[in-house]
Simulated assay, not measured.
Amino acid sequence: MGNPTPDLARPIAVVRGAPTPAIQSLFCAFAQRLGPRVRVAGVVEEEPGEGEAQLRSLVDGRRFPVFQELGGGSTACGLDAGSIVTACEAVRQDIAAGCDLVVLSKFGRLEAERTGLSDAFAAGLAARTPILTSVAQKFDPVWSAFAAPLYVVLPPDLAAIEGWWRSLHRQVA
């Protein structure tokens, strides 16, 4: 996935180059640094216990399980698509209520299939609200078809994310 141009003032920032937990921690740190003056909507992925991945709302702390228990011997996919869609609807409601930034944990397999958080991505774009996310490299073709040329790729660095945020505000000013 390349940048259409090196211009940081794109409405979507994709952070890439670190394991998922590190990127999600960066998203949390960035949202915290913005403080109460910036209304942040969205979800980050957390793993409070082994194999207990969940999405946590940045608005109210609600948690949405990523996986469901299917019982021993099951060979079906353990993703809890219903819970992720519920998280998506919560984010869409938060966007509709008004926000300055949307943080979406990632664009992955479900989003590539136009489910999961895909409607939250679309809602953020429709609201003309900046989006911070990550995209696994294997989903680059689908992501580019969805978001090009609206994104810039950033390294997993808090200063890079802050630079992207500042560039958006210079463009508006």
Results as ranks from 00 to 15, higher is better:
Leu70Ala: 10
Gly78Thr: 13
Val44Tyr: 06
Thr75Tyr: 09
Cys77Phe: 01
Arg56Ile: 01
Val66Gly: 02
Pro48Glu: 04
Cys77Thr: 02
Gly71Lys: 06
Glu47Lys: 04
Val43Ile: 12
Phe64Ile: 04
Ala76Gln: 15
Ser74Asp: 06
Val44Cys: 03
Glu52Gln: 15
Glu47Cys: 02
Gly49Ile: 00
Ala53Val: 00
Gly61Arg: 02
Glu69Gly: 08
Pro48Cys: 03
Phe67Pro: 00
Val40Cys: 06
Asp60Arg: 04
Gly42Tyr: 03
Pro48Asp: 01
Glu46Val: 10
Gly78Phe: 00
Leu70Asp: 08
Gly72Arg: 15
Gly73Arg: 11
Val59His: 05
Leu58Ser: 10
Asp60Cys: 05
Gly72Asp: 12
Gln54Ser: 14
Arg62Pro: 03
Glu52Ser: 15
Val66Pro: 00
Gly71Thr: 11
Glu45Ala: 13
Arg39Leu: 00
Gln68Trp: 00
Val43Ser: 06
Leu55Tyr: 09
Leu70Ile: 13
Glu47Arg: 08
Arg63Asn: 07
Arg39Thr: 07
Gln54Val: 14
Glu50His: 14
Gly73Phe: 12
Gly49Pro: 00
Glu69Asp: 15
Ala76Asn: 12
Gly78Met: 02
Ala41Cys: 05
Val59Glu: 10
Val40Asn: 05
Ala53Met: 15
Gly71Arg: 08
Gly49Ser: 13
Gly49Cys: 00
Cys77Arg: 10
Pro48His: 05
Phe64Glu: 04
Glu69Trp: 10
Gly71Val: 09
Phe64Cys: 07
Gln68Leu: 12
Val66Glu: 04
Val38Lys: 03
Glu46Cys: 10
Val43Leu: 13
Val40Glu: 00
Gly71Ile: 08
Gln54Pro: 13
Glu50Trp: 13
Leu55Thr: 04
Glu50Asp: 13
Glu47Pro: 01
Ala76Phe: 11
Arg56Glu: 01
Arg63Thr: 12
Arg62Cys: 11
Gly51Cys: 06
Val38Ile: 15
Val38Thr: 15
Ser57Trp: 07
